[in-house]
Write a protein that binds this DNA or RNA. Structure first.
Length: 674
DNA sequence: TTTAGGG
DNA sequence: CCCTAAA
């Protein structure tokens, strides 16, 4: 019946092939495509969802907000997210017409209507009220059924998020290092319990702390914006962070601890306070789309009344056959490359389901229904409630011309973040700041107990080295997803060249209008490392306007998902990065100074900023240099090293070998060439 | 962690 | 570059 209504209204939900327009306006990746199994959902999905929505938010606004909301505040906003192929700008129609008018029931149960999961964010109470009003009767609904998007996630990973915020930060030199941030956004499309007063902005204390750290690390980053382009190498966005704050407010939930067995989790979301929370939401996007604002606002306001109506329509719903399969079906046409699953190990390191993440809030004695072996809670027959406070995506490399607008940069960053989120990440776990590496330990064994301080536990999202990173073109303000029918026509052809060169490490092969000195110690643009002060910036060659995140392994895309976790476990072989002449020069110079047995010092002296050159690498390189110097030039391969350098290598090597011998004979003598 | 050396 | 024993 509901389905019929839906069809009557011409809404086909998942089955509706995207119209050209819809496809055109789809500018986000469908990050759920890779999902093949409900059980593999977790915090990752929450993040992905949030980021996804943020991107959509960017699309909603013709003019993305540039300013930072200073922690505040707070235009009424109801987050409505439509299906991924729908034009987000049409959401008003979806909302006001299809939702508010007749087809509201469609949304009430996307299980029946195949409505996209993220079509609406209304709590069940509202839906039920509306449906009841419109149609006289309504099925029993559980909030989760109506809360799409995050609601689904909530259900799946048992994270009841009352609010999520995503923000990206970077520093742009030349602007007083003023921070450019993605407009912090709060997504609170879930119904929120009335207790959630403190979280209307998503745990700002957590956010602020994190953010300042980000800023600090980013401060050292110099954008050579005065040189014709902004080249971030690896740095500017090393400090980029995505933080998502979620909060659990559901203390009545009873469900499985084991996600792999948690097909029958039942969840109710508190309703009270929903309106209030919503009204506190800020979105300048609404400003930019006044019509939406008005309608959305009023409609929302109107809906808030329904929150007060008693709603006892509850229906338990099985997770199993619900949103994600449809989602998957829906997204199947999307050529997202994120067909890689989150490392199951990584996910399993999360105290899933009942465990929300960071803060240990409470324990409920609900018996676990799962039969898995890796839940430490099961043996205790108790749950530990956790609260995911934040995640940080540690790595993002972007090249963007200085002529690009901040908005485009933001979009680029956001896109990249989304892509990263959409592409397999590790979930790391921190306890007291220390990483918990042993996934086999139980939480108790790891020292995670009910008595933990709320900030004792943390999680990290780590880029999967095997996951191809996104290549984005910030110049396209509305980047099309990879499956977009429209090619990135504006993407400059040089971008690929640049990236290829970067991948080959053959930066010298590219024009370097900025002088080669600066490339002496090229910063890795791929190794994940926080930006450090005083690091030199890799100047990217001309025409760099593509946002390039150099993939570690392109073939990663071809990896079968389940192999993925394993591969990500054992780190893949690092990308080959042949030493440039400049690097050799620096190495020789340092070794001449320091000798051959102090590779750490050599590293610190000459390659301190170059994250991808470890002292082992330097030692190895020296070894090969010595070897190279001893063989005939005809036997040498690769980029030729100037004979002068090789001579110095031999000289230094001979010298320090002698010194070493001396030292061994006369340990009291401090060998020092300086 | 760093060094040293084999693979 | 990787791996790892040894320090």
């Amino acid at each position: 019946m509901v389905l019929q209504k839906m069809l009557d209204n011409g809404f086909n939900g998942y089955q509706m092939p995207p119209t050209p327009r819809a496809a055109r306006s789809s500018r986000r990746r469908c990050i759920f495509q890779r999902k093949t199994d409900d059980h593999q959902l977790g915090a990752f999905d929450l993040l992905a969802t949030v980021a996804d929505k943020l991107v959509m938010e960017e699309g909603i606004s013709p003019k993305p907000v540039d300013t930072i909301t200073d922690g505040e505040q707070a235009k009424d906003k109801l987050l409505i997210v439509k299906s991924c192929d729908a034009d987000v700008r049409d959401q008003s129609s979806l909302f006001t017409e299809q939702v508010s008018e007749a087809p509201l029931s469609n949304i009430c149960s996307n299980e029946h209507t195949s409505l996209p999961n993220d079509a609406c964010s209304w709590p069940a109470s509202v839906m039920a009220s509306e449906c009841s009003r419109k149609f006289g009767s309504v099925e029993q609904l559980d909030d989760d059924e109506c809360k799409l998007g995050l609601g689904i996630i909530t259900k799946k990973c048992d994270v009841q998020s009352s609010g999520c915020r995503v923000s990206v930060g970077c520093i742009l030199e030349g602007e007083s290092e003023k921070q450019i941030k993605m407009d912090p956004k709060i997504y609170r499309n879930l119904s929120v319990s009335g207790k959630d007063d403190v979280c209307s902005l998503g745990c700002p204390e957590t956010w602020d702390g994190k953010q300042s750290a980000l800023v600090r690390s980013a401060n050292s980053v110099k954008f050579p914006s005065c040189r014709g382009h902004m080249s971030c190498g690896s740095f500017p966005f090393n400090s980029e962070g995505v933080e998502i704050v979620t909060r659990d407010n559901d203390e009545n939930s009873s469900r499985c601890t084991q996600p792999r067995n948690a097909n029958k989790a039942i969840r109710r979301l508190p309703r009270s306070g929903d309106c209030r929370i919503r009204k506190s939401l800020a979105s300048k996007h609404w400003k930019a789309t006044p019509n939406l604002k008005g309608e959305g606002y009023n409609a929302n306001k109107e809906r808030c009344n329904f929150l007060n109506t008693k709603n006892s329509y509850k229906r338990q719903i099985s997770q199993r056959d619900y949103p994600f399969k449809k989602r998957k079906l829906y997204y199947c046409s999307s050529a997202s490359n994120s067909d890689v699953l989150v490392s199951s190990d990584g996910i399993s390191s999360l105290p899933e389901n009942d465990s929300k993440g960071a803060a240990l809030l409470s324990v409920n004695a609900t018996p676990t229904s799962g039969a898995g072996e890796c839940s430490p809670f099961q043996s205790r027959n108790s749950h530990v409630k956790l609260n995911i406070k934040s995640f940080r995506v540690p790595e993002l490399f972007i090249e963007i011309p200085e002529t690009a607008t901040v908005g485009s940069l933001k979009r680029s960053v956001m896109k990249a973040v989304t892509a990263i989120l959409g592409g397999g990440l590790h979930v790391g776990m921190l306890l007291q700041g220390k990483k918990i590496r042993d996934d086999t330990r139980t939480l108790l064994q790891a020292g995670i107990s009910h008595g933990n301080k709320s900030d004792a536990l943390g999680f990290t999202l780590e880029p999967n080295p095997t996951q191809a990173s996104p290549t984005l073109c910030p110049e396209d303000p509305f980047q099309h997803p990879r499956d977009s029918p429209q090619p990135l026509a504006r993407s400059p052809p040089t971008a690929n060249e640049v990236q290829d060169a970067v991948e080959r490490g053959n930066l010298d092969a590219l024009p370097d209008p900025l002088g080669s000195n600066i490339r002496n110690f090229p910063e890795s643009n791929n190794d994940s490392a926080p930006s450090t002060p005083h690091m030199s910036l890799e100047k990217t060659p001309t025409g760099s306007r593509a946002l390039v995140a150099v993939p570690e392994k392109r073939e990663a895309l071809a990896i079968v998902p389940m192999c993925k976790s394993k591969q990500s476990e054992s780190a893949q072989r690092r990308m080959r990065r042949p030493f440039t002449v400049s690097e050799v020069e620096a190495l020789v110079q340092a070794v001449e100074k320091l000798g051959t047995g102090r590779w750490r010092d050599v590293k610190l002296r000459a390659f301190d900023n170059v994250k991808h050159r470890t002292y082992v690498d330097l030692k190895d390189k020296w070894k090969t240099l010595v070897h190279t110097a001893r063989i005939s030039p005809q036997q040498r391969r690769g980029e030729p090293v100037p004979q002068e350098l090789l001579d110095r290598v031999l000289t230094a090597h001979a010298y320090w070998s002698k010194q070493q011998t001396k030292y061994q004979l006369k340990p009291q003598r401090e060998s020092c060439l300086v």
